[in-house]
Amino acid sequence: MEPEWIWGLAGGLLIGLGGAVLLWGNGRIMGASGIVGGLVDGSGRADWADRLAFLAGVFGMPLLLYPLFTEVDTHISQNLTVLVAAGLLVGIGTRLANGCTSGHGVCGISRFSWRGIVATLFYLLAGGVSVLLFRHIWGII
């Protein structure tokens, strides 16, 4: 079994290339929460087809790759309360902050955006505290 960090690095490079294609092709920032959120709240009505094409790629590519990596497991929680609460937090949080791991993290940090750097520090901090509380202190996850 090859070291996992190689897969992480290779996947990361592909993610960054995806961002570069959207930036150089369409002049847009590749932020997953903004692209989906604009369709949900109507703020992205003007370029809905671009957004759907992007999402089709994000949805479709893992589906094509999955048969080659059948040992892959997402280990998702099966606790509905946990899933709904986490989904609401992620949905509201990313729309309030105007970005998530891809927009603020990848596209923001790479151009030394203060907002991107601060947002990333905040969600990493909150994520660390969340795992500490829910895993180690309350034992829910």
Binding site: L55, A86, L89, T94, R95, A97, F122, G128
Partner: peptide, 23 residues
């Protein structure tokens, strides 16, 4: 930005999914 990122991080830790991987 601050409150949103904190809420997002809390949910990310709880379920282990952020928006891109969720899709």
């Amino acid at each position: 930005l601050a409150i949103g990122s904190l809420l997002f991080g809390a949910g990310w830790g709880l379920a282990g999914l952020c928006p891109g991987p969720a899709i």
